Deep mutational scan, measured.
Amino acid sequence: MSHKQIYYSDKYDDEEFEYRHVMLPKDIAKLVPKTHLMSESEWRNLGVQQSQGWVHYMIHEPEPHILLFRRPLPKKPKK
Results as ranks from 00 to 15, higher is better:
residue 1 M to V: 11
residue 2 S to W: 15
residue 2 S to Q: 15
residue 3 H to R: 12
residue 3 H to F: 15
residue 4 K to C: 09
residue 4 K to H: 08
residue 4 K to E: 14
residue 4 K to M: 08
residue 5 Q to E: 13
residue 6 I to R: 08
residue 6 I to E: 06
residue 8 Y to S: 10
residue 8 Y to G: 04
residue 8 Y to N: 05
residue 9 S to M: 11
residue 10 D to L: 06
residue 10 D to K: 15
residue 11 K to R: 09
residue 11 K to H: 09
residue 12 Y to K: 10
residue 12 Y to F: 10
residue 13 D to P: 04
residue 13 D to T: 15
residue 14 D to T: 07
residue 15 E to H: 09
residue 16 E to I: 14
residue 16 E to W: 10
residue 16 E to L: 12
residue 17 F to R: 02
residue 17 F to V: 05
residue 17 F to E: 03
residue 18 E to P: 00
residue 18 E to F: 01
residue 18 E to I: 02
residue 19 Y to H: 08
residue 19 Y to L: 02
residue 20 R to L: 04
residue 20 R to H: 07
residue 22 V to W: 01
residue 22 V to D: 01
residue 22 V to S: 03
residue 24 L to D: 00
residue 25 P to E: 05
residue 25 P to M: 01
residue 26 K to D: 13
residue 26 K to S: 10
residue 27 D to I: 07
residue 28 I to Y: 09
residue 29 A to T: 08
residue 29 A to E: 05
residue 29 A to V: 09
residue 30 K to M: 09
residue 30 K to S: 10
residue 31 L to D: 09
residue 31 L to K: 14
residue 31 L to H: 11
residue 32 V to D: 01
residue 33 P to V: 01
residue 33 P to K: 06
residue 33 P to D: 05
residue 33 P to G: 03
residue 34 K to W: 04
residue 35 T to V: 05
residue 36 H to C: 00
residue 37 L to E: 03
residue 38 M to N: 01
residue 39 S to T: 12
residue 40 E to S: 07
residue 40 E to R: 06
residue 42 E to K: 00
residue 42 E to C: 05
residue 43 W to L: 05
residue 43 W to V: 08
residue 43 W to S: 02
residue 44 R to T: 02
residue 44 R to I: 01
residue 45 N to E: 13
residue 46 L to G: 01
residue 46 L to K: 02
residue 46 L to M: 03
residue 47 G to H: 00
residue 48 V to A: 04
residue 48 V to G: 01
residue 49 Q to Y: 08
residue 51 S to Y: 02
residue 51 S to W: 02
residue 52 Q to Y: 08
residue 52 Q to M: 08
residue 53 G to A: 10
residue 53 G to V: 02
residue 54 W to N: 06
residue 54 W to C: 05
residue 54 W to K: 00
residue 54 W to M: 00
residue 55 V to I: 12
residue 55 V to A: 07
residue 55 V to Q: 14
residue 56 H to I: 07
residue 56 H to S: 01
residue 57 Y to A: 02
residue 57 Y to P: 04
residue 58 M to Y: 07
residue 58 M to E: 10
residue 58 M to R: 14
residue 58 M to A: 14
residue 58 M to D: 10
residue 59 I to Y: 14
residue 60 H to Q: 07
residue 61 E to P: 11
residue 61 E to K: 13
residue 61 E to G: 09
residue 62 P to F: 13
residue 63 E to A: 10
residue 64 P to W: 05
residue 65 H to W: 10
residue 65 H to I: 05
residue 67 L to D: 03
residue 67 L to M: 03
residue 67 L to Y: 04
residue 68 L to F: 14
residue 70 R to Q: 01
residue 73 L to Q: 05
residue 73 L to K: 14
residue 74 P to H: 11
residue 75 K to F: 09
residue 75 K to Y: 10
residue 76 K to N: 10
residue 76 K to G: 11
residue 77 P to A: 12
residue 77 P to H: 10
residue 77 P to I: 14
residue 77 P to K: 14
residue 79 K to R: 12
residue 79 K to A: 14
